[in-house]
Design a protein around this nucleic acid. Sequence first.
DNA 1: AATCGATGGGAAAGCGCTCTCCGGTCGCTG
DNA 2: CAGCGACCGGAGAGCGCTTTCCCATCGATT
Lengths: 349, 349
Amino acid sequence: MSGEIRAGARLPTLEDVARVAGVSRATVSRVVNGIRNVDPQLHEVVWHAVEVTGYVPNRAARSLVTRRTGTIALVVSDNEDHDDDPFMSRFFADPFFGRVVGGLLSVLRPLGIQLALQLVGTQQARVRLVGDLRQGQADGAVVLSLHPEDTLPALMTEAGLAAVLVGRPATPLPVSYVDVANDAGAALAADHLVGRGCRQVGMISGPVDVPASQDRIAGFRRAMARHGHPYVPAVAGNFTHDSGEQAMYQLHREHPGLDGVFVANDLMAQGALMALREAGCRVPDDIAVIGFDDSSAALAARPPLTTIRHPLEDMAAESARLLLARIDDSEQRVTSVIFDPVLVHRQSA
Amino acid sequence: MSGEIRAGARLPTLEDVARVAGVSRATVSRVVNGIRNVDPQLHEVVWHAVEVTGYVPNRAARSLVTRRTGTIALVVSDNEDHDDDPFMSRFFADPFFGRVVGGLLSVLRPLGIQLALQLVGTQQARVRLVGDLRQGQADGAVVLSLHPEDTLPALMTEAGLAAVLVGRPATPLPVSYVDVANDAGAALAADHLVGRGCRQVGMISGPVDVPASQDRIAGFRRAMARHGHPYVPAVAGNFTHDSGEQAMYQLHREHPGLDGVFVANDLMAQGALMALREAGCRVPDDIAVIGFDDSSAALAARPPLTTIRHPLEDMAAESARLLLARIDDSEQRVTSVIFDPVLVHRQSA
DNA sequence: AATCGATGGGAAAGCGCTCTCCGGTCGCTG
DNA sequence: CAGCGACCGGAGAGCGCTTTCCCATCGATT
């Protein structure tokens, strides 16, 4: 760590290291990249020269020749609406985003791989992104598609880009993705509710056009039917706190006898809890509530939410691994990894 | 948009465009970069050739010669603890992170500037980061320092790197930063509480070693003193929901007569609200509660929190602008932009 | 002892781009 | 009409790195 250089001075290059070590650029390059058999003694001399000079490889020069950037992109593909005003997108204020970043970084950082953030809203931006990516802006992309009709995943596969989606695409596509078994998770919730003796169970679902939401609905219905409850009253929300509150009011009004409800995410469940308290219902005594995600909202809720854990960090980490494998070997076949959800028992159900 | 190229084919370079347009590389480069006066007619021919070939500039090659990457780094400097396990850092699950990203992107994206994420935990990682940055991994960095004794800001200024901090550094440093006027915000809270008639006011503060927290404490105390309340009972939390709940229990136990409380962030305030409900206190009738941040927690709370709005997105956007200015002109003098907080009146106070 | 194979390391050719230099054309002035 | 300057566009030199190609060296084999 003796490589202290004055700010502003020209930075050391391979050439400089080579001169100090008394070898050629090629040799230094080999040593730095740990390639081939280099005489152990030279090896040491070179490393020493690297330290003395404070050499750090120039990424641009390297990627110019290797055609690799050592960067992967995290692409958030949102709707056009907020295109000029990304932070209007509530998405960034949602812990979801940070959890994905954290999971990705846990794999990427130890490997020295950069994570570059991309946000696309318009079709034009999507096309441009694909161009940039093809030109080597990044070696691959992890895509967070927030909209069921998003064209980005298709664009990317057509362009032959290395990509992995977080969350199953709305339309089948030859692309790897990671997801949680939403249906199985919902079934877990159904089993639990029935298991604790609920006789009249309702559901607050997410938007009916997003795949994850559809799976939760289907999974829950199927499981309830299996338990002898072919009919499950349901109201759809949009995954926000408020929509959960409203949906609960409606559900309670229309079905006052409900003694159990499955809410498709924790945020809505938290809202539902508030509606229930307002309505004078005790949770879980009068009505049991079960959420989905095991987000921080689950802990903040009163009573703390029994919920289905969504292993987002693990999923993101796995998506990074899949992507890396695909980048290393473009023949890598399309694979999807589906994570098992588990029920986290707290006090609301 | 006629530039459809088969995946896998060699990508078009300046050379290709030049050939198609019948000009030299240099001219194409000028046109693409919008430099100098190029004959308008040629200009058009070149652009046409660009479209025909589907040319996209190669970032690596460009930055190799310009010594600019068109990337800025968002560095999250956390404590050593979670170094191998970034997502253990609760930070990513906090909307704070996403809000900063959103604000940054609102400035960077229209300019076509990349945002690269960096997370450093150990001293070693910090030193390496500085090396990478000097070597041109990014043109500058926006630094989120999560720990009061963080050495990163100092390391960066010593290395002469372009950096802007989000949040005032714990020790004075010749570096630009953006922040919110924490003391003024706390004073706003004090004024409001006193204004609505509270006679006995307490405070739940953040950790006493972080600057933002200190400012809120000092600002609140000063304002209360001005209003004739030299003594303000206080309990410190750590900005989490739970710590707010615990602190409220303690405060209420030790000072049952309290009719107003300022809580240093919304998350803790939400916790405090729950403690209060548990204790049978009505908010705001028995005791008024005011938070800080105006985060989503403020809206999710019941009653909705009166709080001090922390313009995080605007601050992040400004930090990007400051950084960009500094990158364009390294003589740019150190400037700090302090944002005025405003009180958002809801129902808790 | 001569030949062969293996192996380590140097020379040099680019990767795709920018930008300085310089030559060639104009239009304009005296 | 000669001469000067302004301006446009081409040639080409790198930016710092990897990697192929090749030569030299050395130990082993016949």
